[in-house]
Write a protein that binds this DNA or RNA. Structure first.
Lengths: 140, 140
DNA sequence: AATTATATTGTAATCGTTACAACTTAGAAA
DNA sequence: TTTCTAAGTTGTAACGATTACAATATAATT
């Protein structure tokens, strides 16, 4: 669990990513809002505190953090990337009614396929789609 | 294995999708080119035989076929949808060097999590990213 | 405090996909 | 076979998330 700006600052330093107010705020947002937000959601929320914030900054920050392995990019729909500060292996379930993305545990190690011998695997993803219990009971 | 136009025609009929030259050609293309193509790849190839073909038709056809469960949409990158006529459960490995998408067997049943009790699952996806053996030996 | 490499900003461009209206066709009914 | 109509196709324009780029500002080192 990472909470303080100090922890983030140290982690950025160890990854050779320069410290900036914007980057800390993006990390803070992700650690406090486990909603798998889009870049735009992050921008819209942060611009209230940082009126000069630019969308481009949010995108480049997320790109840098993803490359450093501090955040994970989630591709479920083709028209939007979602971001997750939890980079441990886990699956995502996206409700097609309300759009909420739920986490669920997945043991990725079990899925090392024999057929991928010789492949260098950098990233593993599991996602399901369907309807969540809340929407099922609401008959949406 | 589905090969003949006749088979496709029957399957379309059973799914209450109206038969058209364009739809048959899209199905034919997908069954003969297991390369997980983009809509644009399909368009570019088919427009040679059907000069009047429109991109919109390719998109709407693929949308209809996906809804009917005859093709699967693959979201790995946010900027493109790829299409697969193999709707059986299997995983995809995308090589980040050459872009080729490989299939590999996956027992999706194992991914059934206790934590998803109460969720109605409609679609399961597993994809990995990395470098394929061919690109590894070519030092790309 | 000066320096310099890097980050931020705002605007414009990109590009896969979708919306829409006119035209055409598939398939059913007569 | 001919007619009819709902549905499919086409082309153009719009959309929207993301990226490119150049000017400005900032972090961190000297």
């Amino acid at each position: 669990m990472k909470y303080t700006s100090d922890d983030f600052a140290k982690e950025l330093k160890s990854k050779n990513i320069r410290l900036s107010h914007q980057r800390l705020k993006v990390l803070e947002y992700l650690s406090q809002n486990h909603i798998h937000p889009t870049a735009d959601q992050i921008y819209t929320s942060l611009v209230k505190e940082i009126p000069t914030l630019s969308r481009t900054t949010v995108y480049s920050t997320l790109g840098a953090l993803a490359e450093a392995g501090m955040v994970r990019m989630i591709n479920i729909e083709d028209h939007e990337i979602r971001y997750d500060i939890n980079v441990e292996n886990h699956g995502h379930f996206k409700c097609e009614s309300c759009g909420i993305i739920y986490d669920f545990p997945v043991d990725m190690a079990h899925y090392e396929s024999e057929d991928l011998k010789g492949f260098k695997i950098r990233d593993k993803n599991v996602y399901f789609k369907g309807i969540c219990p809340m929407c099922l009971t609401n008959k949406n």
